[in-house]
């Protein structure tokens, strides 16, 4: 019992924890990614709405990686989720095509898709559902999206 209490005290002291995932770039993994992130953040005791918001934002970022980063081809999508106090940070990274003009890509309704099926609202959704979104990208090098949200405000 003494051991258990010691362990609990140690765990309590640890203020930052991180989940790292590497997923193959496949559309099936869009759901897997958002559910895994939601599961991890559930220990922050979020509201249903906060959890759904994060799921949507993660889905957008991973979908971008699958569709644009790797254009439906092979590649790895890296996800890193960090909980630090009340802040949740999600990084979604690919090493694919990259975005030539990030500012333009982030404009609402902007899309390079020609089928008409894509709304061009991916980044707008990430911004609507998270507090802060940062995109770093370079052609040929890939894209890194960092999203932050305060949970339980």
């Amino acid at each position: 019992m003494g051991m258990d209490m010691e362990m609990a005290a140690k765990e309590k002291k640890r203020e930052k924890e991180t989940l790292r995932m590497e997923l193959e770039s496949r559309s099936e993994n869009e759901e897997f990614a958002r559910v895994a992130v939601a599961m991890f953040m559930s220990r922050m005791d979020p509201t249903m709405e906060e959890m759904e918001d994060v799921k949507t934002a993660v889905s957008e970022a991973v979908t971008n990686g699958v569709i644009h980063g790797y254009a439906g081809g092979e590649g790895i999508i890296y996800i890193e989720v960090t909980i630090e106090g009340r802040e949740l940070a999600v990084v979604v990274k690919d090493t694919g095509a990259g975005i030539p003009d990030v500012k333009k890509a982030m404009e609402p309704m902007y899309t390079t898709d020609t089928t008409g099926e894509r709304s061009g609202m991916g980044f707008s959704f990430m911004e609507a559902f998270m507090d802060q979104v940062e995109v770093v990208s370079a052609p040929g090098e890939g894209t890194r999206v960092t999203m932050r949200k305060q949970i339980g405000r």
């Binding site: 759904e52 949507t56 889905s59 957008e60 979908t63 894509r118 709304s119 609202m121 959704f125």
Partner: peptide, 16 residues
């Protein structure tokens, strides 16, 4: 139970 901007895309296109 879940929808992201992909759902918006297909609805908008069907609407058009």
């Amino acid at each position: 139970e879940f929808m992201d901007s992909s759902g918006i895309g297909i609805l908008l296109n069907r609407y058009k």
